[in-house]
Design a protein around this nucleic acid. Structure first.
Lengths: 399, 399
DNA sequence: ATAAATTCTTGACGAAGTTAATTTATCCGT
DNA sequence: ACGGATAAATTAACTTCGTCAAGAATTTAT
């Protein structure tokens, strides 16, 4: 009788999911330790861990360095085997596709770009299928196997209004799409289990499991760039919004009272995005410099060189972002906030002011919230998509 | 062998809790209907319901009017027996205690005020014990029994930083308290199981179970008055904030950018509370009217009579609140928002502007969020406390 | 009457996790 | 080197909770 292939991640019960996520996100941990952290009995951990070991997802490390010296059987920590399965993540922008292959810990193994010449659904699907095929053709560093043999899940991130549960793009302003059942289309043409998610939420998932959010029951991620957005994790769950809208920190009105509030394309007034988006900054810089052709890069260079009026433009943007963060933090009281942005280059110009305003505006102990500001490399978006794919192991059924 | 008294609410399993809350909050429902709404099997509902019926908490109504005409055994809906247990709720303000007795559905049966002459902990505890005794001495409308015989739980609401799990008042600005183990003190001296909660959160709990929040997976309540605060419910759970701070909509900076932002006592600038709190309104009204002795009531009267500058003061406050709501809704995307305030009288002056600004500022489908604006009677705060006591049936163990 | 529909009830079963005892592996003192 | 102490891991029996499937109850429709 032929030996059947080892099962895919055998997540068969809440306890199994708990144990697996704990080991996945908290690095090597002994069984007792998992039990302590999760509240499960150690017997339950033993039982839940075995199928994962048999299926190759977890392994027992040789007994570790003894941290607490003393008697007793040494722990044999459980560790993830990151190469047991690979995941494809693709971010769709208006201009191109960015795709990555990651391991179970969402660490990028390969990344590829692919320009988009049309926003036609069929065209995008074909391009995406091609990109996935290219990515899968690569081979894992252990040499023996290609990614194809161990990749079953695809995550796709796209900005706009996305229904993760049904895999439908409800509205994408950049692509001009409405109600496109993208996950279904991709599932048919790639054969991979496909999960669709809003891009900022995807990024947040990556952060929640494999970044700054590990161990925090609540945290928020804010992205700054062409648009300004955010997503929140509360009690380990992504906040969705009853009507699909949540985390729109870009449209928090921080200058909505006086006459000084700039109009925002959303119809509101004084939105963060109307002040601190890349576009808004460039517009202000041009006005201040009296040069209608000034580019962002030039403005950055001159501000760095000490041009005070231009420095003030960036400071104003930082202030607006800080105020938005203040609103966010006062309303939710997250444990940590990560601010990340496309313009890697410009961070030095913002950071100070963001921190100062934030500290001023955070109410009471909300100020104890940890604030991390850091650049956002290109592939990070695609990595977020891959992280969503990893998470899809846990709640795989489409509605 | 003596018959033992029927057990208190026999909440022994998740299913029991689910069934009981469903009947409690969704009115009479047939068992199958409970099953459909909760995802439980109908067998589980039958089993879970029985002990509640035996203990007198639920009853089977005579088969109801047939709503969907057709064949089949008629349903015998389950209904709550609201008088099976009474709850005491007390709100502590700086000046007085407001206490109520409610039934299981948090409907007020008796209300009593009690002035506070000192903020000394012992004094407040004694006053509260007296108030509770007075309340309990009353008798239920069914005549036979006094409240005392069927009241086991006390809820206490207080503004400030409160740890519900441990029953400790961490910080109360109005009373000048820090780290007072109030629940413990009251439990000892009243013999009632005591739950402590922040006042706005308590109000939100009442709304969640017995008001506008029924059936909404996420909603927010905003209170406007001396202070401006809010609390959020997400997925049926109150948002706590990692550091105990959450829902501070009063300190969302809606006028933080220009020079026009008024300084707030919190150290921030342009906070909603610095514009729209009762104090701030009075101050503006005095400035506008050129009368440093103008009272709120006079300002209201003159605004109602058509005094344009004074009307503008209220409109400005409404605008600030609307912007705060915009921030809340864009970030959180609740299904519904309730705005409520102490100054019953002044609502007509705000409402319009709040709605207008909200509609302008809500991003995309966040505008689909239902907005209810309504006055907040005095006893409502105490009712919130009682609702917390009702909820304590479900998660009773102190940490 | 008889059939069909729908609600409610019952008892057997199964899944998941706990408790408590047992085994395993190491350190430590003599 | 040996025995005991100590802690990790495992095992097996048991508990709890809820589902399933079958059937009883009670109505309408034919």
């Amino acid at each position: 009788m032929p030996r059947s292939a080892p099962a895919r991640a055998p997540i068969t019960s809440p306890a199994a999911a708990t144990v697996f996520t704990t080991v996945l996100t908290q690095g090597p941990v002994s069984r007792v330790d998992v039990a302590r952290r999760t509240g499960l009995s150690s017997a339950a951990v033993t039982k839940a861990a075995r199928p994962f070991i048999e299926a190759g997802y977890l392994e027992e490390l040789a007994s570790a360095e003894r941290t607490a010296p003393g008697a007793g059987r040494p722990a044999s920590p459980l560790a993830i085997r990151p190469d047991r399965e690979y995941f494809i993540g693709v971010k769709i922008t208006g201009d191109d596709l960015i795709g990555v292959v990651t391991d179970l810990q969402a660490r990028i193994r390969v990344a590829k770009h692919h320009p988009l010449t049309s926003h036609d659904v069929d065209h995008v699907v074909r391009a995406l299928v091609d990109l996935v095929a290219e990515l899968l053709a690569g081979s894992a560093p252990d040499g023996a196997t290609s990614f194809r043999d161990r990749a079953y899940c695809l995550g796709v991130a796209i900005s706009g209004d996305v229904d993760r549960d049904t895999g439908v793009v409800r509205y994408s302003p950049f692509l001009g799409w409405r109600d496109v059942p993208l996950a279904e289309l991709l599932e048919e043409s790639t054969g991979l289990a496909t999960t669709l998610e809003n891009d900022v939420k995807a990024l947040t998932v990556a952060e929640q499991w494999f970044g700054e959010g590990v161990g925090a029951s609540s945290f928020a991620l804010v992205t700054v760039g062409t648009g300004i957005g955010s997503a929140l994790v509360l009690d380990g769950r992504l906040v969705g919004g009853a009507h699909g809208v949540a985390g729109e920190i870009g449209h928090v009105p921080v200058a909505g009272m006086g006459a000084d509030g700039p109009a925002c394309h959303c119809g509101g007034t004084g939105c963060v995005e109307a002040i601190a988006s890349t576009e808004a900054i460039v517009a202000s810089a041009r006005r201040v410099a009296g040069d209608p052709a000034l580019t962002l890069d030039e403005a950055v260079a001159r501000a760095r060189a000490g041009d005070e009026p231009l420095r003030a433009v960036f400071a104003t943007a930082g202030h607006a972002i800080g105020l938005g963060l203040g609103a966010l933090v006062n309303l939710f009281g997250p444990e940590r906030v990560v601010v990340s942005g496309e313009g890697v280059a410009t961070y030095d110009l913002f950071e100070d002011q963001i921190r100062r305003t934030f500290a001023e505006q955070a109410f009471g102990s909300a100020a104890r919230c940890g604030l991390v500001i850091r650049p956002l490399p290109f592939e990070e978006w695609a990595r977020g998509a891959a992280a969503v794919a990893v998470q899809s192991l846990f709640v795989s059924d489409r509605l």
